[in-house]
Design a protein around this nucleic acid. Structure first.
Lengths: 196, 196, 196, 196
DNA sequence: GATGAATGAGATTTCATTCAT
DNA sequence: AATGAATGAAATCTCATTCAT
């Protein structure tokens, strides 16, 4: 790796961790520079402003956050459908907690930013939509395969997305719930033939 | 009301709105003072520091945010159980959107704060717990009344809480989903006799 | 004088002198604050920005710079016309040199600013126009009184203005010319009945 | 031209234009480098510091600014004396305005510098002196040829120089005066046999 | 009950300059 | 002949806070 690229990625890493620890607003360029061991103005050789650095962190965080990472449609079939769906949710519970907290903290920072800045809102919504659509596609497949009752698929999918998404938030806050059972309850409700 | 109390509540109101608009960090005491029409140092007569003002806003916001506001157990009975449960969720969709956004924005600010400051974490968790427990109590009642299958009640309750809570987040970001149907799907899943 | 007004005028004075000595760009707020003996941010209590301070200095300099100060039409009459005209120009040569240099240096700073900033251009042009018009009015009076040949008055007036104005510039640079004779030559040319 | 010389003169050109547009202080080496399409440190191969570059621009500007360019004594004779004198002044009014403005802006920058830096003062004074002396020599010749009354030649010459010089300043600021008539008035005053 | 005046700490950013390559 | 990477110094400006009045 060239020197420039090295420093560049050190800056991304340091900023990322500091954003998680102190929040974006309370992380100054001085703190980042100190962490990396370069001078404050040197940051400007790599990023034209703090704002640009923030955007690069945004890219960095969100590139990792895709439905397909958690649920790979290609691996699903009629036989393993329920299992896979359960496993996809449970996987997030088994992950390295510390690392997850860090990612989620920064993600939350950006959700707040998104409430005020169009630039972030669009991308954040695109990410949420990616999960909403992902679950929908999955259930449609499940219906095609005859394992999911073919009614009300969109609402079911979105309910799953909301539960899945919010489990991460509650984890982040340190609420200790029986997430496995909750996710299972949500997943199971999908397969019920509505009798009401 | 005494003058002191008047100014006090004007400060709370102004700070609350400004926190929603610009975020806590980016709202300066100068902005708040200007909004209320007093001088900056005068704020210190009412609050010993910005931090204390923030805490009072926290109280102000969270005093309004209780499960019992949304779902009043006293009004539930065996006959209206499903209806009331549906209505409690839908009510949040019918509320004055602008006002709701403001409250939710500030609430989100505090969720972020809670990730870094023990002081806020405890109270925020207490609030989330209030909803988690509230739904649980409700379903236990429902089971007693024979309208909810008496299995897996806790997980069902928490799933409802997660869906309920996250609907507000998605609303806030401006995602346009069929929330009524989603909530109905979640609610209906509660009544199913698990046959799998 | 109130404390605020005192500091305010100390700031104006200090900034004015420092602008003359180092130029506007090279005079930092730190230098000004140090000169007055207050802290850097205190300046912002009195002026909202460096730009505003500059504008106030501009006002301060230009309020002193009016044709009527140098040539008071009310004092002119047919008998003393030439004498008064001469004296008005010569007065500027007799003035306290050091003080004059300071004023002129800052004035020159603003001329440069005026080349780039509409805001200053207009006001500077108004000032030059004040002299151009002043000389014109004077010569018109002179013509009415029969002491100035009533031809070509505008060009004559403007020529006087140019000479008068530029004498200050040359003085400022330290060029040692026989300014008295130059001014006299210019003034005398006004009275000639053109015979060519 | 060698590559070195090429880049050198590109730097001079670019710096010159940028100085005119933004002023010396507000023109950074980064801006100049960008304009020429080289890297910032490369400037240091050609000039040892920004200060040296400024001095070279000074040379560049002032080499063009000589009395002999405007009034070539060799072309004057008794018959065409007045005409030539008029034409020399009018020429400056006919010149390409945009180009003239650029030169004059930079020149003005240096006048300001000259007020603070001995190094520039001497050379600037030399230039002004060149015009003052030039007009004087011209009038002396005119007197020898019998076309200019042989009295008060120095003051007349200097008055012409002041008018000539200041016309450029007023042009630069965008003041719209009848400069032709003004210059003619000044020139004509030279030929008058003083009768007062 | 409130303010006028001020401040220390610190934020982002710009700039001329350096030096190994 | 030029550059990539970095820096020290300093600029403007903001902010929470203080304290005599």
């Amino acid at each position: 790796m060239k020197k420039k690229d090295l420093t560049h990625s050190q800056l991304i890493d340091a900023a990322f961790l500091l954003f998680a620890e102190h929040g974006i607003d309370k992380t100054s360029l001085a703190m980042i520079a100190k962490e990396v061991g370069i001078s404050k103005p040197s940051i400007y050789y790599h990023f034209s402003s703090k704002e640009e650095l923030i955007e690069r962190i945004f890219d960095f965080v969100f590139s990792d956050y895709r439905f397909e990472h958690d649920f790979d449609l290609a691996e699903f079939n009629a036989d393993n459908f329920r299992e896979k769906l359960l496993a996809g949710g449970w996987a997030m519970l088994a992950v390295d907690k510390e690392n997850q907290r860090v990612v989620l903290k920064v993600l939350n920072e950006f959700i707040l930013s998104a409430l005020r800045d169009e630039k972030y809102r669009e991308r954040l919504i695109a990410m949420q939509q990616n999960y909403l659509d992902g679950f929908h596609r999955l259930l449609v497949k499940g219906a095609e395969w005859g394992v999911v009752p073919p009614v009300n698929l969109e609402a079911k999918a979105h309910m799953l997305a909301l539960v899945f998404d919010n489990i991460t938030s509650y984890l982040l806050l340190g609420l200790e719930l029986k997430y496995q059972a909750i996710w299972q309850t949500a997943v199971d409700s999908i397969f019920i033939k509505e009798a009401n």
